[in-house]
């Protein structure tokens, strides 16, 4: 009899384990300061710290998965990981296919960077990364769009004169401008694009979405999110 009880207990235990599945978090690892690989070869960045904190608050076991940007959404809906936390702006297009949590970075500006402040950003040649909201924006503006596969190449294009300016997330460009020694400068006016950065989830995963939303709420409420944003994006970053 005792044996029987024991084995039922063991069964309940394993069932319990099965319930507490690890949440797999998909990220790109190539977009500082949001997410990148540090010198030690580990994932690092604002979103990694944030993601771990959110998981802690939602009492979830989380695990990080690196995935190429181009296939990051198809792999999410196909179930290879459960969330995307990769500096992904909330847009209507994306929202049709996947769900987003509330944003954890307020709608941020995209900005132009050029070698001189009076570069022709409205009618000149503007570089952007393929398949980003920035590329879509430039395609619709009057400027001639030139697309590169990686953000690295878009900035290189300005340095070597292939493009008059590069248009990308301001937060991505800021450290590059700071350290370029005056070679790169801001140009034109900043453009608010997208609905802030949020965590992407499958549409059928409402429960997980609620958990993360609650965790983001609590981080917004106690100010830790703002502190984190300032730590990674600098004093001038938009906060809540």
């Amino acid at each position: 009899m005792k044996k029987l009880i024991l084995s039922t207990a063991a069964l309940a235990l394993t069932a319990g384990f099965a319930m507490a599945d690890t949440v797999r978090m998909g990220t790109e690892g190539a977009y500082p300061p949001y997410n990148f690989i540090n010198d030690a070869g580990n994932l690092d960045g604002f979103e990694i710290v944030l993601g771990n904190e959110l998981c802690k608050r939602a009492s979830l076991t989380c695990e990080w998965v690196k995935n190429d940007w181009d296939s990051i959404i198809p792999n999410l809906v196909s179930g290879n990981y459960d969330t995307i936390i990769a500096g992904m702006s909330i847009t209507d297009e994306r929202d049709e296919v996947i769900d987003f949590t509330q944003n954890y970075i307020p709608p941020a500006d995209s900005a132009y960077v050029a070698t001189s402040a009076d570069a022709d950003v409205a009618g000149g040649v503007v570089a952007a990364q393929t398949a980003t909201i920035q590329a879509g924006y430039i395609a619709e503006s009057g400027a001639a769009l030139i697309e590169f596969a990686t953000p690295e190449e878009t900035v290189a294009a300005v340095r070597n004169g292939e493009a008059d300016a590069v248009f990308a997330d301001k937060d991505y460009l800021a450290p590059l401008v700071d350290e370029s020694g005056g070679e790169l400068v801001w140009a034109g006016a900043d453009v608010p694009l997208g609905g802030g950065v949020g965590m992407g989830l499958r549409e059928s995963d409402g429960e997980l979405k609620a958990k993360f939303n609650a965790a983001i709420d609590s981080m917004k409420a106690d100010g830790t999110l703002n502190a984190l944003i300032i730590e990674w994006f600098g004093e001038n970053a938009a906060t809540y």
């Binding site: 181009d70 959404i73 296919v97 040649v125 398949a131 030139i146 697309e147």
Partner: peptide
């Protein structure tokens, strides 16, 4: 780089794959 969204067949295929996520 592709200029003015003028690209080859793969460029457009990945454009659609990216927009439709399918």
């Amino acid at each position: 780089p592709a200029r003015g969204q003028k690209g080859d067949a793969l460029y457009y295929a990945s454009y659609f794959a990216d927009k439709t996520f399918n």
